[in-house]
């Protein structure tokens, strides 16, 4: 047997791959569920915090800034582990899935709040004045004039951050979430063969590559000429 054949036999073993394909596929489903939950709740919470912050209530803003800085400085893995192993001592015992979801959603919330906030504050004050001078309320100005412009600025950093954080779903392995990496690594230890890891990598590419391409498309679509 030549070197190439041995390489294929080891890393792309057809029999092993066929056997564990269903596990990897079910891992993909879990990863997709986790990722969607993280993106929807994390971005919604981040936007909500940024909108609250725009009201300019001092003590509330200090609290928001503290929370945001906290979750931006803690490594996501630490948050997951604390929530899964630590929180039960305080009462609730979230599952590995819930721990991973909430932890990464909090991290995305923190980073996206900063990005939304930067977007809102970067809009020239004259936009507020023009809108308010024609009688639009604070909220109407925010939603019709400020946010549409702010969103356009936030799309590139936001998509980058969102992709980076949702890839963190792989951290769920440490708290027994059966997402792609979890399935792949248990398949590796059961089969004594690394082929499932290759499948796992392929699964991530299948999931995230279209997202990256879509993000690029959204960025160009939302750019307008000044």
């Amino acid at each position: 047997m030549g070197g190439w054949d041995r390489f294929v036999e080891t890393f792309f073993n057809a029999k092993v791959m066929a056997k564990y394909l269903p596990d990897i596929l079910s891992g993909m489903v879990v990863t997709i569920e986790l990722a969607l939950l993280i993106v929807v709740t994390g971005l919604a919470a981040g936007l909500a915090l940024a909108l609250l912050r725009s009201l300019g209530i001092r003590p509330l803003n200090w609290l928001i800034i503290f929370i945001v800085d906290l979750f931006r400085s803690l490594p996501p893995l630490v948050i997951i582990v604390l929530m899964y192993f630590g929180l039960p001592y305080a009462g609730p015992s979230p599952s590995g899935f819930v721990s991973t979801w909430l932890s990464l959603a909090l991290v995305l919330m923190a980073f996206s709040e900063e990005i939304f906030w930067a977007g809102i504050t970067s809009i020239h004050h004259g936009q507020w004045e023009a809108s308010r001078s024609t009688g639009l309320s604070y909220g109407q100005t925010l939603f019709n004039v400020i946010l549409p412009q702010a969103f356009r600025l936030t799309i590139p950093p936001l998509t980058n951050r969102t992709i980076a954080i949702t890839k963190g779903t792989a951290l769920g392995t440490v708290v027994a979430v059966t997402e792609i990496l979890g399935q792949a690594s248990s398949a590796v230890s059961n089969s004594y063969n690394p082929s499932p890891l290759m499948m796992g990598a392929a699964a991530y590419i299948v999931l995230f590559f279209p997202v990256v391409v879509a993000a690029r498309w959204i960025e160009t679509k939302f750019a307008w000429k000044r």
Partner: peptide, 30 residues
């Protein structure tokens, strides 16, 4: 404020809307 129009040095048009959209916004919302 509807009764008091204001025009600014820096125009302050909404860059994400057409000229028509700029004019209709307050007509519709206010």
């Amino acid at each position: 404020r509807q009764r008091i129009g204001m025009v600014f040095q820096s125009f302050n048009l909404y860059p994400h809307m057409t000229a028509l959209g700029n004019v209709t916004l307050a007509l519709r919302k206010v």
